[in-house]
Design a protein around this nucleic acid. Structure first.
Length: 782
DNA sequence: GAGTTTGAAACT
DNA sequence: CAGTTTCAAACTC
C-alpha cells in the first residue's frame, strides 16, 4: 500500500526526523502517492453512496449503496493531516493552494474536493467575483463541501490546533495544540499522534494525516521545530484556512476571533463556538484520553510510536478506509465538522473499536445510541438535545432532494455536520474524534436541515451580508414549519419496520432515532446490515428509489416539455405525482410538498399545483399571475382556507414579484416556507414562477436575493442542483441516469441530470459546478 | 390526540 | 404493466 517513497522516506527519516523541514517534505511527498491509492480504494470500497452531486463524475456513480455511506468521525479526524498537508503545500495564494492540494494527492483531492472543489472553486472564484460574498460563501461552501465526503475539515482543524495553541490558548480546548506549547513537545507528539492515529486501526485512512502528524511530532520534538512547524502550519494554514473557510461559517467567526484559527476551525463544528462549548471541552478531554489509548494501542501494535516511517507503513495499511475527521472538536469547544468517509471495512472496524474513543467525545447529544451513528445513515437531527450549538449541519442529500424537510440546525447536537449524499454521506464532526465519536458523532442530521443549509448557503452566497451561520439557522428554523417531521425526520411507522420507503427516515437514508415513534424499527445502526440489504433490494428494483424526489429544475428539462420545466427554477418531482383528490394542493402531493410544480410526468387529476400545473401552466410571468388568479379562484373554491393562508403569507401580489421559479423554492423543496400548516404561500406559487423572490425576501429577509432575482435564482438553482446532484449522481451514478428513464406511465424520473453533470449547468455563478470538474480527476484515478 | 383521507410504495 | 393492497403521512376534527 504504501508508496515506496514513503517507505523510503520513512526509514531514513528517523534521523532526519529531527529536522522538521525534512519531515514535512518527506511526509508530504510520500503521502501523495499513497493517498491517491487510498482514495481510489476508498471510493471503490467505500462506494460512496453517491457522491454528492459534485461527484457527478462517473466514479461516483458506483456508489449507490454508498448512499448510506457511513462516516465515521474517527478516522477522518485523523485525516486532519491532510489539511495540514494541504496547508503545507499550499503556498500563499488560496486558490493556488487549493489547486495544489488537489493536485497533490488524489486522496487529498477527495478530501478536499469537498472542500476544495466546492470551496476552492468558490473561494477562488467567488472571492474574486464577490468579495464579501466570499466570506459567506465559504462557510456554506464548507457546509456543502463538508458534505462532500472529502471535505475534511479536520486537517485544518489540526492546523488550527496548533495555531490555536499559539494564538488562542483560551479557546483551545483541544489538548493537542495547546499542549504542544504548554506541554512538552513529547506530550504534544503523543497527543498529536493520538489525534491522528487515534484509532488508526479503524481508520487506516489516516495515513497521510498520520504522516503529517508524525512529522509534526518530530517537529515538536525539537522545540525549535515545533515552532517552525507552527510557522509552516500557519503559512500553510492560511491558505488552507481559506479552504477551510469555505468550510464553514465558523471560519468567519474564527477569523474574526483569531485570524490564525480561522480556518482551522472547522467550519462545521465550529460554527461559532469558540471554545464555548462545554461539550467540546469535555470532548476534548475524553478525546485526549482516547488519543492516549489509541496511541498506546498504536504503539504497541506498530511498535513504533513515533517513528514516522513505521507510521507511514501503518498508514498504508490502514488506509483502506479513509476517513477524515476533524480534530477540531478537540480544539476549542468549537464544533468541528468532520467529514468522515469510511470504507465499509473501516467502518466496521470502527464500529468495533469505536466504542473507545467515542465515549470521549460523546457529546451529550451524540450519545445517540448506536443507531444514529450509523455510518450510512445520518442521524436525525432532531433530536439533538438541547444543545444547539450551532451544531453541525448535516446534509442529507437525499432528504434534501427528496423532500427537504426541514431540519433544524439547532437540533444538531453535535457540531458535526453530516452530509449525506445519496451515495455517500459526509459527516462533519464535531469533537468526537473517535469512533464513538464517529458513531455518536454522527450528528444527527436532519435532512431538511441539510437542505436548508445548503440552500441557505447558496443564498448566503448570494447575500453576502448575511452571516452564514445566522442565516441558516434562522432560516432553517423559521423555514421549516414542518419541522415536526421535517425538521428532523421522524417517522411513525408501525408495520414497515422502517425498512421500506414508507418510512421517511429510511427513505431519506437516515437511521431512526429517538424522536421517531416507530415500532419494531429496524432502521437502526444495530441493524445496519439489514438496512443496507434492504436498501440494496429496493435500489435494485428502483435505482432511483432513494434519489431525491425532487429534481432540481435548473436544467432545462426537456423531459417535461413544459415550460415550467424550462424555467430555470423548474424543479420537478422525479416521478411526478398521481394525485386524484388533492388537486395537488396539499402535501399529499409530493410535487407540492416538494415545492415544485407538476410536470408532464405527473398523472394527477385536476392539478392545481400552486407551484406549477401539470398542464404546463407553470405560470410564468404574466401568465402566472393570471393563472394564479384563476387558481386562486379555483382554490378558493376548492380550498378557501388554503388560499387564505397563502394570501396571508405573501401574497399580495404574487405575480408581481420577481419571478422566482418555484424552484427556488426548491429549497422549498426542502422546505417551503409554508406556513406552519405547511401551506405554500401563494406568493410562493407565484413566485414559483414569478414571484418567488418574495419568498426569499421574506424568508431571508434579504432583499438582495430578490433584487437579483434572476441571477440569484439561477444561482440557487445551480446550487441546488449541485446539492441535488449528488443524489442524482448517486442514482445516476450510473444506473440512475439510466433509470431516469421513465416509463411514460409510470413514473419516470426526469433525468435530471443531465443537469448535474452538465458542467455547463446554468450559468449560475456557482462555482460548484466547476468544482465538479475537479472530481473527475479523481474518478479517473480509478 | 384520535380518526380520516390521501397517495406513494409494495405487492400480486 | 395494471390493479390491488398496504402503509404512513397529511389532514381534520
Amino acid at each position: 500500500m504504501d508508496t515506496p517513497e514513503k517507505n523510503k522516506i520513512g526509514t531514513p527519516k528517523s534521523k532526519f526526523e529531527d529536522s522538521p523541514v525534512f519531515n514535512y517534505i518527506s511526509s508530504l511527498s510520500p503521502i501523495k502517492p499513497v493517498k491517491s491509492l487510498h482514495i481510489t480504494q476508498t471510493f471503490s470500497s467505500l462506494s460512496f453512496g453517491s457522491p454528492p452531486s459534485v461527484f457527478t463524475s462517473p466514479h461516483v456513480s458506483s456508489n449507490k449503496e454508498s448512499r448510506f455511506l457511513r462516516r465515521y468521525n474517527t478516522s477522518d479526524q485523523a485525516k486532519p493531516e491532510v489539511s495540514s498537508e494541504n496547508g503545507v503545500d499550499v503556498p500563499a495564494s488560496d486558490d493556488a493552494v487549493i489547486e495544489t492540494v488537489q493536485v497533490h494527492n488524489n486522496s487529498v483531492e477527495l478530501r478536499e474536493n469537498c472542500k476544495s472543489d466546492v470551496n476552492v472553486e468558490e473561494a477562488s472564484a467567488e472571492p474574486q467575483n464577490e468579495g464579501s460574498a466570499f466570506v459567506i460563501e465559504l462557510p456554506r461552501v464548507l457546509k456543502y463541501d463538508c458534505g462532500s465526503p472529502d471535505c475534511v475539515s479536520t486537517p485544518h482543524a489540526v492546523v488550527a490546533d496548533f495555531e490555536s495553541n499559539s494564538s488562542d490558548p483560551s479557546a483551545n480546548l483541544v489538548p493537542h495544540v495547546q499542549v504542544a506549547p504548554e506541554i512538552g513537545p513529547s506530550d504534544n507528539e503523543a497527543q498529536i499522534q493520538e489525534v491522528c492515529l487515534s484509532e488508526p486501526k479503524k481508520q487506516g485512512a489516516i495515513g497521510d494525516w498520520e504522516c503529517l502528524m508524525s512529522d509534526a511530532v518530530l517537529i515538536f520534538d525539537s522545540p525549535n521545530t515545533s515552532e517552525t512547524f507552527k510557522g509552516l502550519i500557519h503559512d500553510s494554514l492560511e491558505p488552507v484556512g481559506r479552504c477551510s473557510n469555505s468550510l464553514g461559517t465558523e471560519f468567519q467567526q474564527n477569523e474574526i476571533n483569531n485570524e490564525h484559527e480561522m480556518q482551522i476551525v472547522d467550519p462545521g463544528c465550529s460554527e461559532q463556538h469558540n471554545g464555548e462549548d462545554p461539550l467540546s471541552q469535555t470532548g476534548d478531554v475524553s478525546h485526549l484520553e482516547d488519543m492516549e489509548q489509541t496511541q498506546d494501542r498504536f504503539n504497541s501494535n506498530s511498535g513504533m510510536a513515533t517513528n514516522p516511517s513505521k507510521r507511514k507503513d501503518k498508514e498504508a495499511e490502514t488506509r483502506m478506509a479513509f476517513t477524515c475527521k476533524s480534530v477540531f472538536s478537540l480544539h476549542r469547544g468549537m464544533r468541528r465538522r468532520c467529514l468522515d468517509f469510511d470504507v465499509s471495512v473501516a467502518r466496521r472496524k470502527n464500529l468495533g473499536d469505536g466504542s473507545n474513543s467515542s465515549s470521549v467525545l460523546a457529546q451529550p447529544d451524540e450519545e445517540t445510541p448506536a443507531n444514529e451513528r450509523r455510518p450510512g445513515f445520518i442521524r436525525h437531527c432532531g433530536e439533538a438535545p438541547a444543545r444547539r450549538i450551532l451544531p453541525g449541519i448535516g446534509l442529507h442529500l437525499n432528504a434534501i432532494a427528496t423532500t427537504s424537510k426541514d431540519c433544524k440546525i439547532t437540533k444538531n447536537v453535535s457540531s458535526g455536520i453530516h452530509i449525506r449524499l445519496p451515495g455517500s454521506t459526509v459527516s462533519i464532526h464535531s469533537p468526537m474524534d473517535d469512533q464513538e465519536g464517529l458513531d455518536k458523532a454522527l450528528i444527527p442530521v436532519s435532512s431538511e436541515m441539510d437542505i436548508n443549509t445548503i440552500e441557505n448557503g447558496v443564498q448566503l452566497l448570494e447575500d453576502p451580508s448575511q452571516a452564514p451561520g445566522s442565516i441558516t439557522n434562522e432560516e432553517f428554523n423559521q423555514n421549516s414549519p414542518k419541522k415536526k417531521r421535517q425538521g428532523c425526520k421522524r417517522c411513525n411507522c408501525k408495520k414497515s419496520k422502517c425498512l421500506k420507503l414508507y418510512c421517511e427516515c429510511f427513505a431519506a437514508g437516515v437511521y431512526c432515532i429517538e424522536p421517531c415513534s416507530c415500532q419494531e424499527c429496524f432502521n437502526k445502526p444495530i441493524h445496519e446490515d439489514t438496512v443496507l440489504a434492504t436498501r440494496k433490494q429496493i435500489e435494485s428494483r428502483n435505482p432511483l428509489a432513494f434519489a431525491p424526489k425532487v429534481i432540481r429544475g435548473s436544467d432545462p428539462a426537456p423531459d417535461y416539455g413544459d415550460e415550467s420545466s424550462k424555467t430555470p427554477a423548474s424543479a420537478r418531482h422525479k416521478r411526478g405525482c398521481n394525485c386524484k383528490k388533492s388537486s395537488c394542493l396539499k402535501k399529499y402531493c409530493e410535487c407540492y410538498q416538494g415545492g415544485v410544480g407538476c410536470s408532464i410526468s405527473c398523472r394527477c387529476e385536476g392539478c392545481k399545483n400552486a407551484f406549477g400545473r401539470k398542464d404546463g401552466s407553470l405560470m410564468t410571468g404574466s401568465e402566472e399571475q393570471d393563472e394564479e388568479e384563476a387558481e386562486a379562484c379555483e382554490k378558493s373554491l376548492v380550498a378557501p382556507v388554503q388560499k387564505m393562508e397563502i394570501h396571508n403569507n405573501e401574497d399580495p401580489n404574487p405575480g408581481s414579484s420577481h419571478p422566482i421559479t418555484p424552484l427556488r423554492i426548491s429549497r422549498s423543496l426542502v422546505q417551503l416556507p409554508f406556513s406552519s400548516k405547511g401551506k405554500p404561500p401563494r406568493s410562493s406559487l407565484v413566485t414559483g414562477t414569478s414571484s418567488s423572490s418574495g419568498l426569499y425576501s421574506q424568508m431571508h429577509g434579504k432583499p438582495s436575493i430578490l433584487r437579483s432575482s434572476q441571477p440569484k435564482l439561477e444561482k440557487h438553482v445551480q446550487t441546488i442542483p449541485d446539492e441535488e446532484m449528488p443524489e442524482i449522481l448517486v442514482g445516476d451514478g450510473s444506473p440512475n441516469s439510466a433509470v431516469k428513464t421513465s416509463s411514460p406511465n409510470s413514473k419516470r424520473v426526469s433525468s435530471p441530470h443531465c443537469h448535474f453533470g452538465s458542467p455547463g449547468r446554468r450559468p449560475g455563478r456557482k462555482l460548484i459546478l466547476h468544482s465538479i470538474p475537479s472530481f473527475p480527476s479523481l474518478t479517473p484515478q480509478h
